[in-house]
Each structure stands twice: as C-alpha cells, then as structure tokens.
Amino acid sequence: MSQSWSAKIIGTGSYVPQQILTNKDLEIRMDTTDEWIQTKYGIKQRHVAGSNDNISSLSIGAAKRAIEDADIAAENLDLIILASINRDVKAPATACFVQAELGATNAIAFDMNVGGCPNSAYALLTGIKYIDPFRFKNVLVICTEIYTKFIDWSYRNTACFLADGSGAVVLQCCEKKEGILGYDFGVNGTMAKSAWWPTGGTLGTISDNVEMDGKAVWEFGHTIVPESIRNVFDQANLQANDIDFYIYHQANVNIIRNIMDILKVPQSKTHINNDRFGNTGGASSLIALDEACRQGMIKKGDKIMFVAYGAGLAWGSILFQM
C-alpha cells in the first residue's frame, strides 16, 4: 500500500558572512583578473567568513530566517539535517549545536555530506524521506559551506570562485497531491577525482587544494544534468515549459544558461546570483531559492525544478510544488 502523504516547502532562508571579497581584491592575491573571472564564471564578488564565523553560526542565521518564513516555532521541528563538508568540531555533529541554539528541543539532529555542491539536493531528499504525519511532520534542512578559511589563495583554479554561505528550508508533511512530484539522483564514482578536496581523511593529506578537472565537470554539467531533469519530466508526465521556475547550483553562469538553452526554456525562468555570492557549494542552490522566493519570482503553487550537482560526481534533481 503506497503512502498517502508527501512533503512541501513552507519556508526558506539564507545567510552569508558580512565581509565581501571582490575580484579586484583577488587580483592582489593571485595571478588573475576581474575580467577573466567574470568571463569564465560570472562572479564579481563573494562573501567570506570572518574570524567569528563558523559552520554553526552561518547555519543558525539561515535556519532562523527559514523558521520565521515558515511561521512555526522551533519547538515544532522534529528533525534537523545539516549538510556540509566541514564542521565546527570532530564530534558531536554540528547540527547538535544548531539544535541547541535554535531551541528546537523536540528535534533530533545529524550532519551529512555527499561532497559539497550536491549536498542540497541530497539533504532535501533525505528530509523528504523522513517526512511522515506521525513523527517527522516538520523537518529543517540546512546546507552550509565555509571554504575560504581552508583554501590555498595562490591556487587560482579553484580559489577564485569559492565562497561561504548557508541556505535552509523547512519541509512539512502534506497530502500526496501536493509537494514532491518527482526526482532523479545518481553518482558516478569513477569520476570522483574530477572534483575533490584530498585532505583531512584517513588517506592523509594528498593535497591541500580543492582540485577540479574543469573540462570534465563542464561536460558533466552539460550532459548528465539535462538528462536527469528530463528523467523527472517523464516521471511527472510534464514538459520543460510546464515548469514555472528552475533553481540550479550556482557554480557557473555559463553552465546554467547553457542548460536552459539545451532544455529550450527561457532564461527568465531561472535565478542566477553567483555574481554576488560566488560558488558556496551546497548552500548556493538554497540561497538562490530563498532569494527567488523573497523577490516574488516564485509563487505559491508554482512547479519548481531544483538541481544540484558536483563532487562525487553526484547529481540530484527534484520537482516540487511550492
């Protein structure tokens, strides 16, 4: 017997550090130019963590805004999922600190990690799978990244686009006819070293740099991502133009625009903000979702295609009704 319930998003939130680093600032730090970064990635500036910023503090900032937007009390949260490649301490899970600060006394909390950029889609799917009308009625999903405290600023290949920030959503149990309409996920582990950060694990420190095969990731974004989206279309028996809005991982403005062209969807049906925030990994798509909602680009009842991809190489596409 199939279940009669689903999950819907009832609140969004985002939070970024106050300090801004422009491309002109980076020209002093590394061998690069403002023109090169804008042409290659579309980025003009990014927010970077200060000495008092950490994974929990950014997460709490985004979570509070999402909870306020959802118009529920923190005590009514049943589960908190925090996705990040970093953490405040080795143990316990950073989600425990977030739970305490929010006063979410009835929520269980845990961390998870798929590898940065895909984290938002995987964390959302995990939250969706937990949702039920009995124990997990309200689920807070947070994706937070702080890259700039750890990267080698002389390594232009990745340091020029990485940034810090947090995004969050509140999921709530709903009737089957609402909420999630379809999803498609996958991992190609044979390409894991195409985008990886080979330090801090039991293999030892292979390199301190976030390393990326730009050509491989570019091809991946242009092939697997449109295929994944089309798989969701088939599940929901919909076409590309039936979707009201598309939210993507904000890695590269050129990839986003090209995917929209491949799908033959107007560019006006997506929101790009990496010119101001850079690539905040898994947080980026949730920050874009929050901005699009708050600026009125997304309305109640709209069908939203949410897409995140990257390290793994992993990808996830979720279609939901707002």
Rank of each mutant, 00 (worst) to 15 (best):
M1A: 13
W5Q: 05
S6M: 01
K8I: 02
I10V: 15
G11M: 03
I20C: 13
T22L: 11
T22N: 12
M30G: 03
D31S: 14
I37G: 10
Q45G: 02
R46A: 13
R46P: 10
A49K: 09
G50H: 04
S51Y: 00
N54W: 03
I55P: 04
S57H: 03
S57C: 03
S59Y: 09
I60C: 06
I60Q: 07
A63R: 04
R65P: 00
A66P: 05
A66H: 05
I67T: 09
I67M: 10
D71H: 14
A73K: 14
A74F: 01
N76M: 09
I81A: 05
A83F: 06
A83Q: 08
N86L: 10
N86E: 03
R87I: 00
T94M: 06
G103S: 04
T105D: 08
I108Y: 11
N119L: 02
A121V: 14
Y122L: 12
Y122F: 15
Y122N: 09
A123Y: 10
K129L: 06
N138V: 00
L140R: 10
V141E: 12
I142P: 02
I151Y: 05
W153A: 06
N157L: 09
A159H: 09
C160M: 14
F161M: 15
D164R: 09
G165L: 06
A168E: 07
V170M: 07
V170N: 06
V170L: 07
E175H: 06
I180M: 01
I180D: 01
G186F: 08
K193H: 13
K193D: 15
W196N: 13
W196Y: 14
G200E: 12
G200L: 11
G201F: 11
T205L: 01
I206H: 02
E211G: 01
E211K: 10
A216E: 15
W218D: 13
H222W: 00
T223W: 00
P226H: 04
S228L: 01
R230Y: 01
V232P: 04
F233G: 01
F233M: 14
D234T: 11
D234L: 07
Q235S: 04
A236W: 02
Q239F: 08
A240T: 06
N241W: 02
N241T: 15
D242S: 13
D242G: 10
D242L: 12
D242F: 12
D242P: 08
D244M: 03
F245L: 08
Y248N: 13
H249D: 06
H249W: 08
N252Y: 06
I256P: 06
N258H: 14
N258Y: 11
V265E: 06
R276W: 02
T280V: 07
T280R: 01
G281C: 10
E291L: 08
E291G: 01
G296R: 09
K299V: 02
K300T: 12
G301E: 09
K303Y: 07
F306M: 01
A308R: 01
W315Q: 08
S317W: 01
F320M: 03
M322F: 12
